[in-house]
Nucleic acid binder design. Structure first.
Lengths: 218, 218
DNA sequence: TCGCCAATGTAAATAATATTTACATTGAAT
DNA sequence: ATTCAATGTAAATATTATTTACATTGGCGA
């Protein structure tokens, strides 16, 4: 059932192909492996993949889902390694994000490239993305601990995620050190996240006009 | 000289191809035009492009440069439309960035996709990217006006750019409204930028340990 | 148990493109 | 006027994705 001893019928080709593709991407650092390569790596003919994926695009979408799982996993690990709702934990989660982007470059960009998938496909993938939920919880707990439990953690987590994402992307494009080679991505993120969190707990006066939407919604 | 009346020699094929490619990208919203299409649009044979670009990748790199110019241009316009060093101007620049990402989706992603170009090529492209410089100046002037002229504007501009970039990217991937459809990209950015700027002028106490690198370098 | 079938594989086309090759044209400098 | 380097063209090539027509097989109902 698991591993057929005779060949012809592979038994789990779909997953084998996803894995093969992921390995080729990892090896080459690009997405331009060929279907034939992936098939060969899984031990089948070049046409076989099409019994499981309508196109290379679809295989790539499956690999992307795997990448999201990987990021989720890293987030969970980070979560468990730190005290709930600690500033330290939030920053560590950011570092995990930057490290993932750096170490799994090709996968990270695959995750955010436009693969023209259907709205349903996207929704499904998104609903599985738990990494962001981890951040939301951390921010929520952080605020509660600081006595500001009525803050809209989802909103601020989104802001912090955006910052982390931007830093990761710009770093990948060597744009962060455009005019200053000494800028450190993690420092930039730590610093920004701290400022944001401080801003939440202690809304700035003077410089800040309207601040609608900062409080938790009903 | 500009427009040869006889054909055969086009006169300015290189640019014509870049324009043709840009138009095809604009029209289809994707990068998968064919070299033959672009060539036809420029009125030449399918092989002609290779006298000017070694590969489709290289043509795409040229289009990317054009996209950067477009963003620069938008930034300049925004700069001129607002008072120097005003908070309003900084926020408007952010809106320009988000609008560009939204309206020139395909170009925006082309700008940040890995096209595997050489370090020199990238340096050259980067050095031309003036949009970021506009932001740096705005932040610098803003700080001076607020009496904090010794702040490292480059550092904080990078932080704000990162935030804007992350928001733009996540929005393009429909990730911003993952759990809350009411989140508005521009609001998120305005809010974050305000918090950051407030944080600069009035460094938070209590929540913020080490803050190395926040002051202007010597 | 036997025979059928849907699922899954295979080898051999197809098709779409990028890219190369061998040859043509042309404007400009000598 | 001649020649050459640059620039074009048409006709290969090469590489892949994808399809087609046929093969194998495991499981399921009779």
């Amino acid at each position: 059932m698991t591993q057929a001893r005779c060949n012809y019928h592979h038994g789990d080709l779909s997953n084998a192909l996803i894995t093969a593709a992921a390995e080729l991407i990892e090896r080459d650092g690009t997405l331009d492996f060929t279907m034939a390569e992936a098939a060969a790596k899984a031990g089948v003919s070049a046409a076989a993949p099409y019994r499981h994926f309508a196109s290379k695009e679809e295989l790539l979408r499956a690999v992307r889902d795997l990448a999201f799982l990987g990021l989720d996993h890293a987030a969970m690990e980070t979560l468990e390694a730190h005290e709930a709702g600690s500033l330290e934990g939030i920053l560590a989660l950011g570092h995990t994000y930057l490290a993932f982007a750096r170490e799994k470059r090709a996968f990270f960009s695959l995750m955010w490239e436009d693969r023209g998938d259907s709205a349903e496909r996207r929704l499904e993938a998104q609903s599985k993305y738990g990494g962001f939920g981890v951040l939301v919880n951390m921010v929520q707990t952080f605020c509660e601990k600081q006595g500001s439990g009525d803050i809209d953690a989802l909103y601020f987590a989104t802001q912090i995620w955006s910052l982390a994402h931007g830093i990761a992307t710009l770093e990948a494009n060597q744009m962060l050190d455009l005019f200053d080679a000494s800028i450190q991505p993690e420092h930039l993120l730590d610093d920004g996240a701290r400022t944001m969190l401080a801003g939440i707990l202690n809304p700035a006066v003077g410089t800040t006009p309207k601040r609608a939407g900062m409080q938790k919604r009903a």
